[in-house]
């Protein structure tokens, strides 16, 4: 525990999307997608990030890799604040933090063949060309389990699992340290999921990668993550070691998530799995005071609805000390 070295420190991170602007271009209505996240990633670990659809997981991931600008707060990577970097310096940090996207279809350019897609980060920055480029692409393809013979093929000829391997190859070819994997298997057939997850695990061991693994599938996270952060409404509401979290959740929202395992696919939203959680999420453009979960929480009291509740002792809940919440018991036996 003591040899844990922080790699990325996220402090009070906020991301807001303007929905409407006034005549002067000032936002009048905003969606608060990430509202005050504090999180530290340690070298070599896998941090699982779970939460239901729309809670801001993707936005947080995109902000970390630099695809989204933070509204406020800081992202300290290896001691340097990423939000304060110039465009060129950001370019360098982008090689150390890479993203694997959720959708294996829209994330690959249909007009480019695998050589162009996987080699793109090297070509775009002029890092490699000619035979060296070719070799590095072939090498990377082999490592993710793709035959270099496929180099001249176009994405339309590959299945979801193969495409996700391409995505992984493209992310890893620049030798990153931190990989943000945004639901990398949720769009895949169940039969291929395990293969991709195993690949991610092997690559982590081989390259000493640190993962931020975003998912809404608790069982996937349980198998892969060292620690888990539970996100609700733009905030981390619980953060714990995976085993502890699954046995003894300390936040009522985590308990609710677990009782609904597997969390339904966002596309099926509203049809199943929501039985436990009455009411909808609060309006993200007008967040209520106090605990954001209060309207849906079975344990809510008056004191929950006033004031700011800090993340204390791993849970953002005033009653976490007194409640005895239920985790997933039967999952224990199925863990390897």
């Amino acid at each position: 525990m003591s040899d844990k070295q922080p790699l990325l420190e996220i402090e009070d991170l906020h991301v807001r999307f303007p929905l409407r602007r006034n005549l002067l271009g000032r936002p009048t209505v905003e969606v608060h997608a990430v509202s005050g996240v504090d999180l530290t990633l340690y070298k070599g670990e896998t941090l699982g990030l779970v939460g239901e659809s729309g809670c801001g997981k993707t936005t947080l991931g995109r902000t970390i890799v630099g695809a989204q600008k933070a509204t406020s707060g800081s992202l300290r990577y290896d001691g340097r604040d990423l939000t304060a970097l110039s465009r060129r310096e950001q370019g360098a940090s982008r090689r150390r933090i890479r993203m694997v996207f959720q959708d294996p279809f829209s994330s690959l350019n249909p007009r480019m063949n695998l050589r162009q897609i996987i080699g793109d980060p090297l070509v775009a920055t002029g890092e490699a060309r000619g035979a060296e480029l070719e070799d590095r692409i072939a090498e990377m393809m082999r490592r993710v389990g793709l035959s270099p013979d496929y180099m001249d093929r176009y994405p339309h000829s590959f299945s979801g699992g193969q495409r996700q391997r391409v995505n992984i190859a493209r992310a890893l070819i620049v030798g990153p340290e931190l990989v943000v994997a945004d639901e990398p298997v949720s769009a895949l057939d169940v039969s291929v999921r395990a293969q991709i997850l195993n690949l991610l695990r092997e690559l982590q061991a081989e390259f000493g990668l640190t993962y931020l693994f975003i998912s809404h599938d608790l069982s996937v996270v349980e198998n892969l993550a060292d620690r888990v952060a539970v996100m609700y409404f733009g905030r981390v509401v619980e953060l714990a070691e995976t085993g502890a979290l699954y046995e003894h959740p300390r936040h009522p929202y985590t308990e609710a998530l677990m009782s609904a395992v597997p969390i339904p696919d966002p596309s099926l939203k509203g049809r199943q799995g929501r039985i436990l959680l009455p009411d909808e999420l609060p309006d993200p453009s007008d967040p209520p005071p106090g605990c954001a979960f209060a309207r849906r929480c079975a344990y809510a009291e008056d004191r929950c609805r006033t004031g700011e509740i800090p993340l204390a002792d791993g849970a953002r809940c005033v009653r976490s000390g007194e409640l005895d919440l239920e985790g997933i018991v039967e999952a224990e036996s199925s863990r390897p």
Binding site: R62, R95, F101, S106, S107, D120, A124, T125, R170
Partner: peptide, 12 residues
């Protein structure tokens, strides 16, 4: 589209 975001993250 995500492939455009990727291209940006690739440093293009």
């Amino acid at each position: 589209e995500e492939f455009v975001t990727s291209a940006m993250l690739d440093g293009s």
